[in-house]
């Protein structure tokens, strides 16, 4: 990697199947432009996003993680996104202790009609993570060759 400006962040996005993924779909069919840095992973519900998924993404080299779900009250399963809402602050507190900037992991509520918000969130997050630089958990921290994967 030659410098911060040429750095392309890799962001893993966990998108709820009912709202946020539809929002992303609409962004596509509406020809909205947003950076290609986010790799979407479709999940049934933001409540399905176990903190393990976020840690696994980071451990395997993601520079950022985006979790998107239905707005509170709109969950297809009634209360799944409330679980996401309860986990997020505690996860952020732990990640901060791990030395990971809080801007790298973001929780957003995006409905099926909010394609504009979706494009904006991805754009903002890509720029923020680009500014923070690579996280490279899988490489940088284990220079002594100590970690067996």
């Amino acid at each position: 990697m030659s410098g911060k400006n040429s750095f392309e962040p890799r962001i893993i996005g966990f998108l709820c199947r009912w709202c946020s993924y539809q929002g992303a779909d609409l962004a596509g069919t509406s020809r909205r432009h947003y950076p290609p840095n986010m790799v979407p992973v479709r999940v049934m519900c933001s409540g399905r996003v176990d903190p393990t998924f976020v840690l696994k993404a980071i451990a395997d080299g993601a520079d950022g993680v985006l979790i998107c779900g239905c707005h509170p009250g709109d969950c297809h399963y009634q209360s799944g996104n409330f679980n996401a809402m309860r986990r997020y602050p505690l996860l952020m507190k732990a990640l901060e202790q791990f030395g990971i900037e809080k801007e790298r992991v973001r929780l957003e509520w995006i409905s099926a009609s909010e394609s504009e918000k979706f494009a904006l969130v991805v754009k903002e997050m890509t720029e923020t993570v680009r500014r923070l630089g690579p996280l490279e958990w899988n490489r940088r921290l284990f220079q002594e060759g100590q970690r067996k994967t």
Binding site: P51, T52, L55, K56, N83, M85, R86, R87, L90, L91
Partner: peptide, 21 residues
């Protein structure tokens, strides 16, 4: 369980009795 801390975090979060941020 892969990551004990993450699972614990999840378990703790699920019992928090609050519905707003």
């Amino acid at each position: 369980v892969t990551d004990q801390g993450a699972k614990m975090l999840s378990a703790i979060a699920s019992i928090i009795d609050a519905t707003d941020e």
